Amino acid sequence: MTQTKKTAKILRCPSCGMLVQPKDEDFPFCSDRCRKIDLGKWAMGVYKISSPVLDPDVLEDLDGLRDGQSRDSDEQ
């Protein structure tokens, strides 16, 4: 029976790049300061999740909403 070795991944703080351990109190950050810096970036809109909507049902719903709004604005 062969034994597989588990290799430890080197993990870095997403804010400053310092090495972190999964058991660290502020994981995945190295400190509370880096955690707050990251939160601030989200709050200011630095980070954005942008991917196209590919679900046909969602696209259909969005088209329906868009059509309904354009009709409402035409009637006014």
Rank of each mutant, 00 (worst) to 15 (best):
M1T: 08
M1G: 15
T2P: 06
T2G: 15
Q3R: 14
K5A: 13
K5Q: 08
K5R: 14
K6C: 15
K6G: 12
K6E: 10
K6F: 11
T7V: 09
T7K: 04
T7S: 14
T7Q: 05
A8F: 00
K9R: 14
I10W: 03
I10R: 14
L11F: 07
P14M: 15
P14Y: 00
S15K: 01
S15Y: 00
S15Q: 09
S15A: 13
S15R: 03
G17N: 11
M18Y: 01
L19D: 14
L19N: 15
V20I: 00
Q21F: 08
Q21I: 03
P22Y: 08
K23A: 03
D24N: 13
D24A: 05
D24S: 09
D24Y: 00
E25M: 08
E25A: 12
E25R: 13
D26H: 10
F27W: 03
F27P: 13
P28W: 08
F29Y: 04
F29V: 01
F29E: 03
C30V: 04
C30I: 00
C30M: 06
S31D: 05
S31M: 10
D32H: 09
D32M: 15
D32K: 13
D32N: 08
R33P: 01
C34T: 12
R35T: 07
K36M: 09
K36S: 11
K36E: 04
I37W: 04
D38A: 15
D38M: 03
D38P: 14
L39H: 13
L39F: 06
L39A: 12
K41V: 00
W42S: 00
G45I: 01
G45H: 06
V46C: 11
V46D: 14
V46S: 06
V46H: 08
S50E: 15
S50P: 06
S50H: 12
S51A: 05
S51K: 14
S51W: 09
P52Q: 11
P52T: 10
V53S: 15
V53L: 10
L54G: 11
D57L: 10
V58C: 09
V58K: 13
L59P: 09
L59W: 01
L59E: 14
E60K: 11
E60F: 07
E60C: 12
E60N: 15
E60I: 03
D61Y: 05
D61T: 09
L62R: 02
L62G: 15
D63F: 02
L65E: 05
D67G: 11
D67N: 12
G68H: 07
G68Y: 03
R71W: 01
D72L: 12
S73N: 11
S73H: 00
D74S: 15
D74M: 07
E75F: 03
E75Q: 01
Q76V: 02
Q76D: 07
Q76L: 06
